[in-house]
């Protein structure tokens, strides 16, 4: 107990997920996650209490008690209940890579493998379903995330989520669309998540329809912008070639 308390008394600042999007090695193991082993133990013990006690310090101290630590060990989390939110976001994001049925589906003879777009949709839906257990408490989490000091890690986590979804779906674009894709998926996800907190329909049918409409909107805007760009590019090139054929040295 004495050593345990000593470990607990040294406050560790929770690392932000900002460092997640650097070089990802396939030969070397991934760097450790943002939580220390003690924090992980307490937080994973707290998670089952969230549906009843919400994203609160009560949940955190109940979890600490369950894991065999003293109540005061909630001091370990300088951001308090926000650590629970971060834990939830982090574990749900990491859980996405286990949906192997979506990421690398078996293709039967003559069937077509689902494209990147439909994989993104399915993974986004799976992530929304990851909130199912806590959705009646999710507005507490949203309130915590909206505190000014918590906004940067929350936005970082949202970005990391859409990066994860695009990566798992097999997207390999590395031009400007890298940014637009992540930005649009983040906005779709955030809107659908907010919609889900008020959705009382069976099996979250309304949320599903809402999410599908948002994806449709983004695709419509994207293809309009793409067509416009193609048209402008074609005309500019034709004009240039007309001038060249007239003998202009350009």
């Amino acid at each position: 107990m004495a050593t345990k308390t000593r470990i607990l008394l040294a406050p560790r600042k929770l690392k932000l997920p900002s460092s997640l999007r650097t070089y990802h090695s396939h030969n070397h193991p991934a760097p450790p996650g943002p939580f220390t082993p003690v924090e992980s133990t307490i937080l994973s013990a707290s998670a089952p209490h969230i549906p009843t006690h919400g994203f609160t310090l009560t949940t955190l101290s109940l979890g600490a008690k369950d894991a065999g630590y003293i109540d005061a060990s909630t001091n370990l989390f300088p951001r308090g209940a926000f650590a629970l939110v971060q834990w939830h976001l982090y574990t749900q994001r990491m859980a996405l890579q286990h949906h192997t049925g979506i990421i690398s589906p078996e293709v039967r003879d003559g069937g077509r493998a689902p494209g990147v777009g439909s994989k993104v949709k399915m993974l986004t839906w799976e992530r929304l379903m990851g909130n199912r257990e806590v959705v009646h408490r999710w507005q507490e989490a949203l309130a915590l995330m909206a505190l000014p000091s918590n906004i940067p890690p929350s936005v970082g986590e949202l970005g990391a989520l859409s990066d994860e979804i695009w990566y798992l779906s097999g997207d390999t674009s590395v031009d400007s669309s890298w940014y637009t894709k992540r930005a649009s998926l983040s906005s779709i996800y955030a809107a659908s998540e907010l919609f889900m907190t008020t959705d009382k329909s069976d099996g979250y049918k309304e949320t599903r329809a809402f999410m599908d409409r948002r994806f449709g909107d983004v695709q419509a805007v994207g293809s309009a912008v793409g067509s416009l760009g193609q048209w402008v590019g074609f005309n500019a090139r034709s004009g240039l070639n007309v001038l060249r054929s007239k003998g202009a040295r350009i």
Binding site: T22, Y23, N27, H28, P29, A30, P31
Partner: peptide, 26 residues
């Protein structure tokens, strides 16, 4: 558990260097 791989994760500084290098090369 991980026969072909190496034991330690890359440090933050090494990963930063690698991602900067790849980005600027592209």
């Amino acid at each position: 558990s991980n026969p072909a791989s190496t034991s330690k994760p890359l440090t933050q500084a090494q990963r930063d260097f690698l991602s900067r290098a790849l980005r600027v090369n592209q």
